[in-house]
Design a protein around this nucleic acid. Structure first.
Lengths: 210, 210
DNA sequence: GTCTATACTGGGATAGAC
DNA sequence: GTCTATCCCAGTATAGAC
């Protein structure tokens, strides 16, 4: 039906995005050259400019599509979840799970904001703020209802986001701990940080230690 | 008595360190040129090489002296503090306080590890691991004693470090919140995250909201 | 749409006068 | 120890053949 990205013809644009994403995450935007990206894709440097007008546009595109995906998935994850406690748990579970699945995307969106030129920065920072705002609202609501014991909701929101996002810094697939364990640990830390004690008992049988 | 950095003669080396620190923190190592640093200092580019052999050595030097200072201050802050609960509180209070005082140093040491060449990386990463290890030990001890309710101590240590270190990302002097409030909020989040409830009552009178 | 080739800029680092 | 001047290379982006 549609003409684009349809058949299995090689999708150069997509491969450029993928390689750039990985390299930016590994070394940082400024430390990666268009030649590096081209080599990873298997084309010559000039070919990239058939798909992206500039390195800057490539970065902005990566961040935009990532943030759009995050916001969509995040809204879906919290849709129909009611009450600050349940919403906070859902937020933490979604956030860590998503970050385990897309560590490079997340890392870039978190770290390379400063590499954006003013226009892109404003647009993309606004998307990030929306996301942060939903967590802040949950915390403020829980605090107002007397359910949470926290200081300033904005401070706590940033503290939790830093904590949850930090999972991308050290997590590597096939490591000592599996995905489910890590998520539960972060969810527990999140809920306890606002003064709650465990979501539901030991949660998935507390068999961490033998 | 000593011959170096003694009188008030201009300390070019120190100014290079200071400007490089600030610029690396603002834009990232790869995005800052030796010309940028020289301009900030007020000398010509070549003059830097009278004090540092290379840009890479300059970065390694900044990170090393920072980490040495952190480890010293951290040991002093925890010296004589006994018991996992008190030590965890002292750790959190020290960590956030130090990071509020030296945000640029901390940010670089956290973010620019990947910009180090192999030799410097090993050396400096070992220093970071020592620091992380002290927190992990506190958590493991508290968990073993049944005082803390956490999952894997290594996961929780990294989660807390990311949370506490993240204060440098958003804190700006003269903002809405003062230093003491921010520290107390982070300390509270830290202690609660392991399942404790408040260090001592409301702590400094809970007058956050009017 | 990809290639080769190139324009142009800016980077790290060095040489030698002062 | 700092300066000016320069080397050499890598970087982004473009032009034009295929």
């Amino acid at each position: 039906m549609n003409s684009d990205a349809n058949t299995r013809r090689k999708d150069t644009r997509g491969e450029i995005s993928g390689c750039a994403l990985r390299l930016f995450a590994e070394r940082g935007y400024a430390a990666v050259s268009m030649r590096d990206i081209a080599e990873a894709v298997g084309v010559r440097q000039g070919a990239i400019y058939n798909h992206f007008a500039s390195k800057q546009e490539l970065l902005a595109e990566l961040m935009t599509s990532h943030l759009e995906a995050v916001l969509r998935a995040h809204e879906a994850a919290l849709a129909g979840v009611a009450g600050p406690v349940a919403r906070l748990e859902a937020f933490a579970r979604f956030h860590v799970g998503y970050h385990l699945d897309y560590p490079a995307d997340v890392f870039i969106a978190y770290m390379e904001l400063r590499s954006l030129e003013p226009e892109g920065f404003r647009r993309i920072n606004a998307m990030r703020s929306r996301y942060e705002g939903t967590l802040r609202a949950i915390l403020a609501e829980g605090a107002a209802a007397g359910l949470f014991s926290i200081g300033d909701p904005a401070v706590h929101a940033r503290a939790l986001l830093a904590m949850l996002t930090g999972v991308t810094v050290w997590y590597r697939e096939g490591g000592r701990l599996d995905r489910a364990t890590i998520i539960e640990d972060y969810v527990r830390a999140t809920l306890q940080s606002v003064g709650l004690r465990m979501p539901r008992g030991g949660d998935k049988e507390c068999s961490t230690q033998p």
